[in-house]
Amino acid sequence: MSNANPGDPLDHKGLIREAYRIEGLTLEEARSIFLDWALNLPLGQDQQAAAADLLARYGADQPDNPMSAVLEEAKTPTSRAKRRGGWRGRRPEEAS
């Protein structure tokens, strides 16, 4: 019996749905499941929007579930790291 849900474009393998069903799920396990889910998103799919949708779908009834915390984190935009180091990082900025 497969947990896949090919009709759900956001969770076609059923990973997030099943994560909410696991008793005693730890935060580390939830992060691992989330990573597997994120790596399997279709190319071009907005991860933040998908995480928000899944959180609304599954997390509303289980706000204390570790997967809810992970999805909440995932829907928050992250800042891109700035380049550091290398010869360009040590050069003074040129005037525009």
Rank of each mutant, 00 (worst) to 15 (best):
E23W: 02
G44K: 08
T78E: 15
R31V: 01
L55A: 04
A50D: 11
P92Y: 03
I16A: 05
A56S: 13
A49K: 15
V70E: 12
Q48I: 03
N5E: 14
D61P: 00
L27R: 04
F34I: 01
G24V: 06
A74I: 13
S68F: 00
A38R: 15
A51I: 06
E72W: 00
W87I: 09
R91D: 04
D11F: 04
G85T: 13
P42K: 15
D8H: 15
A52T: 08
S79E: 14
K13L: 15
L54P: 02
A4H: 08
G85V: 10
A49S: 12
R57P: 04
E72H: 04
L54A: 06
L43M: 12
I33A: 04
L54D: 07
R80W: 13
A19P: 01
Y58D: 01
L10D: 15
A49I: 09
L27C: 01
P9L: 05
M1H: 07
E29V: 02
E18T: 11
L41M: 11
A95W: 04
S32T: 10
R21N: 14
N65W: 02
Y20N: 05
N5R: 15
N65Y: 02
D61F: 06
D46R: 10
A95K: 04
N5M: 10
W87G: 04
D61M: 09
L35V: 09
S2I: 05
L39Q: 12
T26C: 01
L10N: 12
R21Q: 15
S79F: 09
V70K: 10
R91F: 05
R83S: 13
P6Q: 09
A60N: 10
L25F: 05
G89M: 06
E94F: 00
T26K: 00
R84K: 15
L41E: 06
D53W: 00
R57F: 02
G24A: 02
M1D: 08
S32N: 11
S2C: 02
K13V: 04
A95C: 01
Y20I: 07
K82L: 15
A50C: 10
M1Y: 06
I16N: 03
D11T: 08
K82R: 14
F34C: 07
L43W: 06
L71A: 11
N65R: 13
A74G: 14
I16S: 04
L25M: 11
E94T: 05
L71W: 08
G14C: 07
V70F: 07
S68Q: 00
G59F: 08
L55Q: 07
N3S: 10
A52I: 06
Q48M: 12
G7E: 14
T76Y: 12
G14M: 05
R91K: 08
P63W: 14
R88K: 07
R91A: 13
E28K: 05
A50H: 08
I22W: 00
R84A: 15
Q45R: 15
Y58S: 01
G86E: 03
L55R: 13
G44L: 09
A56P: 01
L41T: 06
K13P: 01
L55F: 00
T78W: 08
E29L: 03
A56R: 14
G85L: 11
D46A: 14
G86Y: 04
A52D: 13
I22N: 07
D61G: 09
A74F: 13
A19Q: 06
R57Q: 11
P63D: 15
A95S: 06
D61S: 14
P6D: 10
S79T: 13
P6K: 08
A51N: 04
